[in-house]
Design a protein around this nucleic acid. Structure first.
Length: 256
DNA sequence: ATGGTCGGTAACCGA
């Protein structure tokens, strides 16, 4: 059994005790983290080692930042998207056992008329090209993270209100589905799920209490590996903590 | 702090 997870922690410094508690309880084998919001030299490597996890990470002061934690030693780590110069820390890849594993943090995009939205779409094009090669090279690939895209209207609490806004716009959804067309599967949707299952809720306006959320954090697996996926779920418990991240973890289990 | 709440930063920006 291989248990993998993704969690946008929204500052690993602020969330470290919650992360530690969650790792101890859930014991995932591999975890992708996003929005570390600190520099590499501030990463809590020792604290995670004491919890039984090796780490690889690409930090950035204040913004972004991605990591992969694993019980087994990670090997052949690559940070960023090769060939794409980007000052923002959004992609890390490593090999754990037989699996090539990526933790990604897609740009938010801010608004459809923003330069950041154009950057988001360009970033997805570079990610797609990068993943094309990875899926040829590695027989087992898992791509997790905060994609900042709710793929379908059922992934949005109020599709009419969100229509044509960032995170749900047609161009963003097309960019997401182009990743799936490479041969990746959204493992969460392999299984029956509760109605209104989301992974992110705005801190404002009692978003979580009202379940005004979006499903924007995903665990994708290549087709062959997805055949061995036994279950996938959103773990709501950490979102109920005091001072929570605005995202909940997503977990998938593979029988390999 | 041009709505609401957080995070990091120390300028309000980003989400």
């Amino acid at each position: 059994m291989l248990k993998v997870a993704t969690w946008n922690v929204n500052s690993i410094r602020t969330r470290l005790s919650q992360l530690a508690e969650w790792l101890n309880k859930e014991q995932p084998d591999i975890v992708g983290l996003q929005e570390l919001k600190l520099s590499d030299h501030e990463f809590p490597n020792e604290a995670l080692n004491e919890l039984g996890y090796k780490s690889v990470y690409l930090g950035q002061k204040s913004y972004n930042g991605v990591a992969i934690l694993s019980k087994e030693d990670p090997k052949e780590t690559i940070t960023g998207i090769p060939g794409f110069e980007d000052s923002q820390a959004r992609v890390i890849a490593t090999t754990v056992g037989a699996v090539r594993f990526l933790s990604i943090y897609a740009p938010n995009g801010q608004a459809l008329d923003s330069d950041k939205y154009q950057y988001k779409l360009e970033w997805f094009t570079h990610l797609k090209n990068y993943l094309t090669g990875i899926l040829i090279e590695y027989p087992n690939t898992i791509v997790v993270g905060d994609f900042n895209v709710a793929p379908e209207d059922r992934d949005v609490h109020n599709p009419a209100a969100w229509r044509d806004s960032v995170l749900v716009s047609p161009a963003e959804r097309t960019a997401f589905f182009q990743l799936l067309e490479l041969g990746l599967i959204d493992t969460f949707r392999l299984f029956d799920q509760a109605h209104a299952a989301y992974t992110w809720w705005d801190y404002r306006n009692l978003g979580f209490e009202r379940n005004h959320g979006l499903r924007i954090d995903h665990i994708l697996a290549n087709t062959n590996l997805a055949l061995s996926c036994g279950h996938s779920w959103v773990d709501l418990a950490p979102r109920k903590n005091e001072r929570p991240s605005d995202h909940a973890p997503v977990v998938s289990e593979f029988y390999i």
